[in-house]
Amino acid sequence: MSRSASPLLLAGFAAAAVLAAAPLIAQTKAAAPAKSAQAHPPAKAATGAPAPAAKLGLGREALPEEIQAWAISVRPDGKGLPPGKGTVRQGDEIFQAQCASCHGEFGQGNGRWPVLAGGQGSLRSDRPEKTIGSFWSDLSTVFDYVRRAMPFGNARSLSPDEIYAVTAYLLYLNDIVKDEDFELSDKNFTSVKLPNAAAFYDDDRETTEKAFWGREPCMSDCKQQVTITGRAAVLDVTPDAKTAPKVD
């Protein structure tokens, strides 16, 4: 179904396979700051848990080569970035070969595949378009996610230089860099900031939704009149049993 044909589709899943947009917050202040970082966590386990007095002596030391092979995460401060570089121009070429079949030549997204560029200024609108340029907070997330999960169906196949180049091209598609000769590298990476970086804040429900606690709800004669204001059957988008998978 095309995006326009499914007006109420869940945007979160719509972008399922990809890069879409999100936060930056350069030095993010931890959301739920862990207050007790201790050198030695309490040996006593949670209620009912066993409480070994000493280490169990299980597992073995991870070798540097093993850690290097698996430690692919990149943080907003650049920690985890591998050495490498790539230009917008190089990224364009790689993108057309590896990414455009789903995401479109310009990151506009084919069919239901995620849109990677555009949507700036749409976050307060009725139908926000959440892309790297309009929504994401950190460039590190682009690198990290492309490296671990893209191309969809052939993950972990791009070299660091290719990922730098594709990331540079995505910046270009989002008008964050204008020069086709712009080169992104581990050296200048953290100098690039995304537009929506400042628009994220930590969970504040316990403050802003404080009214939901401690209420004693009405039990009888609570309202005069009740009207039905919306019906699912009108939309008729629920899959029926006939379309469900066969199980035998």
Binding site: A15, K130, D138, S140, D144
Partner: peptide, 18 residues
């Protein structure tokens, strides 16, 4: 184990509440 969150795709692009 680190000293700050990673801002992974699943906690920035996704699982953030607009």
């Amino acid at each position: 184990v680190g000293d700050m969150p990673w801002q992974a795709r699943e906690e920035t692009s996704k699982y953030t509440d607009l």
